[in-house]
Design a protein around this nucleic acid. Structure first.
Length: 846
DNA sequence: CACACATATCTTTTT
DNA sequence: GATATGTGTG
């Protein structure tokens, strides 16, 4: 980078901090710029407080993005900085794109796109490309995705003589990912953690992995951050350059940042960090020390007060926007703590709360707010709204028999809405796990209802796309062994394991890429004659394509590669049903390359921007997971699957304990707050998991909703006529929710509801409880996490009227005998389905 | 070396 | 139930 050459902000040349700050305040006093119109006082303050650290706690639907974009607009139009002097980081590409668009709209087309607005990852790549050699890479390095990562690790694990069955590469990849999220190198990971894999080989494998990456001239996702941090720490001059450049830093979704991202931000935002970096402390060590010391001020002993730059250094103009209640990526290394600690990290930080919600009805807000108060350790916000619509609907909770009914009923409701003129685009079904999606897809296909899956399987993860990309990768980066191995024998060239192993060994022993090894080996007698010829041809092809890269249009070249390699032909000859689709995808791939400058630019785009926009023009119901729904909003939201074990997910409980539960609760909060007008929560009594029916009980989160804002409704009615064995009618209707005292009257007081609640307080005992070695300790009392009492809302569980040994019939499981009774929960030995625990209201005497 | 079949494993969330 | 492996045969 060229320092701050042309980057002096127009009006602040020679200005001190105070003068710039004054300039920032000025517009508020004089004529109000039109971009400030319509902002509430808190939003306005968040926009105008440009100097110094600022934390904006923005609850769901409080205009967070608007504040961010207006703030940038303000900085630009007041000429506090050039676009190139603003660093704005987001978590997702979508968020970055949206911000760009909105700024462009506000500022007008005069301002060229902001070069430093992007995701953490893409900005890190941009920085790393410029200084690659300083961290031992070449500028054309490739970015490996999880798939490549796992394949590489598998090789290493096997080479170490470790049983890759017992110690799957996938698991190690997750571990390494976790370490990198914490910015820990192989030498910095805790001894205990290092032992956690393959009897202590974890650390060594991690080390080898990093070495291999360097040889391959590659980075994985975590490396982008970690290497960037290393770059800054080891090269204070480089950091100083960026430091001078970025006058304003903005961070979106701050609650989702992990330790590495946090460190990265601190390096870029705090002048003292630059000096600390000069002392070359290992990355993780310092943080740990700081956490242990409980301080996040300037590192002691490093900053000499006499240094001149402490006076002239730019202020920490960092603005982080986030919502601790929407932190749902803890499992991926996000540290809620980052946001909880902000005012300690950044001295004299201003904290602004945005609590006025512009999105949802008061019922929805109250329901969500009440639910989230069950969490501890919040910064505390209460959403409110001025909107007071007497017609607004309460949050609806509906019960269903099984997941088929759930999908059917929701489908019918959507059709009804559609008939009333409701746009499908404004409807979303948000679920906890993606396997829930299938049932809805099936249903919608038969109904002929348009739907779109948001964030589902990605275009770039399809096999044919990855194959094609592997070809392109080898052409642009001959050292990319992973890509090479992927396609040496695709299409089939008669090169089997033995040949590939020979090549790999040769390459490894000479410490050269495999493609180079091939070049050498075709001149020797090492390989069979047939293999030698094919490889010779292949190597020649790659050399030829590589030669063309600079003077052929990249789309032509890409097509040429796929044709001449025989890859296209392979699918043309394929008679399977998917083949035509795959060929289409390949065409689409080439087509999507057009907007890029060259093959290299395209490859980078693909590795970083893995999301594909499915067309928003089509009116369709949105299906997605709760995670990918964050940041979106819809008029009507369906939240199916609120059952213990699924939501909260058993695994979150097992692995995360109380904090795991709280994260699940935040997910629920995110889900509810996506809704503008209608929010429909569902739970069912039977769900199919792994093709097996499992009994389930309502989620504790349903208990945690405030009665006043919730309406409990029947399923759409037709219980009869379906189910196992085509049982006609509904033998359970009366015992379940058709009680004499329907919930609708007095809240949650019907017998069925009470039973459901009572059940919600112990293990489901079936579906998710007892798999994969973890013990489901049923103790007859409320469900606990690590000995803590979690669910307290047991409301008068009624004793079951069934007796031991009684023969009963269950709609899904058939006939069986009662072998255990616990309140209203029965353990039944079914003749066909085996032992299950079910609610008594679902069985009939026989 | 390729193909077909069998087996095992697994399913939370993803930049 | 589906996919990704591994095994055995041609």
């Amino acid at each position: 980078m060229n320092g701050n050459d042309t980057n002096q902000p127009p009006s602040s040349v020679g200005m001190g901090i105070a003068a710039r700050a004054a300039a920032a305040r000025a517009p508020a006093q004089s004529a109000t710029p039109n971009y400030l119109e319509g902002l509430n006082p808190e939003q306005r303050e968040a926009v105008l407080t440009t100097e110094g650290p600022l934390l904006v706690l923005a609850g769901a639907g409080t205009g967070k993005t608007r504040v961010l974009t207006t703030r940038i607009t303000h900085i630009l139009s007041e000429k506090l900085a050039w676009p190139s002097q603003i660093l704005a980081v987001t978590f997702t590409n979508k968020a970055a794109r949206e911000m760009k668009n909105r700024i462009a709209l506000m500022v007008g087309e005069t301002v060229e796109g902001m070069p430093w607005l992007g995701t953490f990852h893409s900005i890190c790549v941009k920085i790393l490309r410029r200084h690659a050699e300083l961290v031992g890479l070449k500028s054309g390095f490739t970015i490996l995705d999880t798939d490549d990562q796992v394949r590489l690790l598998k090789q290493l694990i096997q080479a170490e003589g470790v049983d890759d069955k017992r110690w799957p590469a996938r698991q190690l990849a997750n571990l390494i990912d976790g370490w990198k999220n914490k910015a820990l190198g192989p030498n910095e990971i805790a001894e205990g953690e290092a032992r956690a894999f393959a009897n202590g080989k974890g650390r060594e494998l991690y080390r080898q992995y990093q070495e291999r990456l360097k040889v391959l001239n590659a980075c994985d996702f975590g490396d982008l951050l970690v290497e960037c941090i290393r770059l800054f720490r080891e090269n204070p001059d480089v950091l100083a350059d960026y430091h001078a450049r970025f006058r304003y830093i903005l961070v979106d979704e701050y609650q989702d940042t992990n330790v590495a991202q946090y460190l990265w931000l601190r390096l870029l935002s705090q002048p003292s960090e630059a000096r600390a970096a000069a002392h070359g402390k290992p990355i993780g060590q310092q943080l740990r020390a700081e956490i242990a010391a409980g301080l996040h001020e300037e590192p002691k002993g490093n900053s000499q007060s006499g240094e001149p730059d402490s006076a002239s250094a730019p202020p920490t103009n960092i603005c982080c926007v986030g919502d601790d209640d929407q932190s749902i990526y803890g499992w991926r290394g996000a540290e809620v703590d980052n946001i909880l600690r902000f005012d300690k990290d950044f001295k004299d930080a201003t904290v602004i709360r945005l609590e006025r919600n512009y999105r949802s009805t008061s019922h929805i807000l109250s329901a969500a707010s009440h639910l989230i108060t069950h969490n501890e350790g919040r910064l505390g916000k209460t959403l409110f709204t001025d909107i007071d619509d007497p017609d607004e609907e309460k949050v609806r909770v509906a019960a269903g028999w099984d997941s088929e009914e759930e999908a059917r009923a929701i489908g019918e409701e959507i059709e009804a809405l559609q008939r009333k003129g409701h746009a499908l685009n404004d409807i979303a079904i948000l679920m906890r796990a993606s396997f829930q999606m299938r049932e809805f897809e099936d249903r919608f296909v038969t109904l002929g209802l348009n739907y779109r899956v948001v964030g589902g399987p990605r275009f770039y993860e399809r096999m044919e796309i990855r194959d094609a990309m592997a070809y392109f990768r080898v052409v642009t980066q001959p050292a990319d062994d992973l890509a090479f191995e992927r396609i040496v024998n695709t299409p089939k060239r008669g090169l089997g394991d033995t040949t590939i192993k020979k090549i790999r060994d040769h390459a490894r022993s000479r410490n050269i890429p495999m493609l180079a090894a091939v070049h050498e080996m075709v001149e020797t007698e090492e390989l069979g004659a047939k293999q030698r010829t094919t490889l010779k041809l292949l190597a020649l092809n790659f050399a030829r394509w590589a030669d063309l890269i600079d003077n052929t249009s990249h789309t032509d070249l890409a097509e040429m590669i796929l044709d001449e390699s025989g890859y296209t032909e392979m699918w043309q000859n394929d008679r399977s049903a998917e083949a035509p689709g795959r060929l289409d995808n390949l065409k689409e791939l080439i087509r999507s390359m057009e907007e890029f400058e060259g093959l290299r630019g395209f490859l980078e785009h693909v590795s970083l921007v893995m999301d594909t926009d499915n067309n928003p023009d089509l009116d369709a119901v949105n299906l997605m997971t709760l995670h990918s729904a964050k940041g979106l909003e819809f008029d009507t939201v369906f939240l199916p699957g609120w059952e213990e074990g699924l939501f909260p997910h058993q695994r979150s409980l097992d692995e995360g304990g109380r904090s795991g539960l709280e994260e699940e609760r935040r997910l629920a909060y995110v889900g509810i707050t996506r809704a503008r007008k209608n929010c429909h929560i569902w739970f069912v009594s039977n769900r199919r998991i792994h093709g097996q029916w499992q009994a389930s009980i309502p989620s504790r989160f349903i208990d945690e909703l405030p009665h006043a804002n919730v309406e409990v409704v029947e399923a759409t009615g037709n219980y009869g006529g379906y189910g196992v064995g085509g049982v006609g009618g509904n033998p359970y209707g009366s015992s379940r929710f058709h009680t004499s005292d329907p919930f609708t009257r007095s809240g949650y007081s019907s017998p069925g509801w009470k039973r459901a609640q009572a059940n919600a307080t112990d293990e489901t005992g079936s579906a998710w409880g007892n798999r994969s070695g973890h013990k489901t300790t049923y103790n007859g009392g409320p469900r606990t996490i690590e000995g803590e009492l979690v669910a307290k809302s047991v409301i008068g569980a009624e004793e079951s009227s069934f007796g031991m040994g009684e023969r009963v019939f269950h709609m899904k499981f058939g006939y069986g005998a009662i072998i255990g009774i616990d309140g209203n929960k029965l353990t039944i030995n079914f003749e066909k389905a085996g032992e299950k625990r079910v609610l008594d209201s679902f069985v009939e005497r026989h």
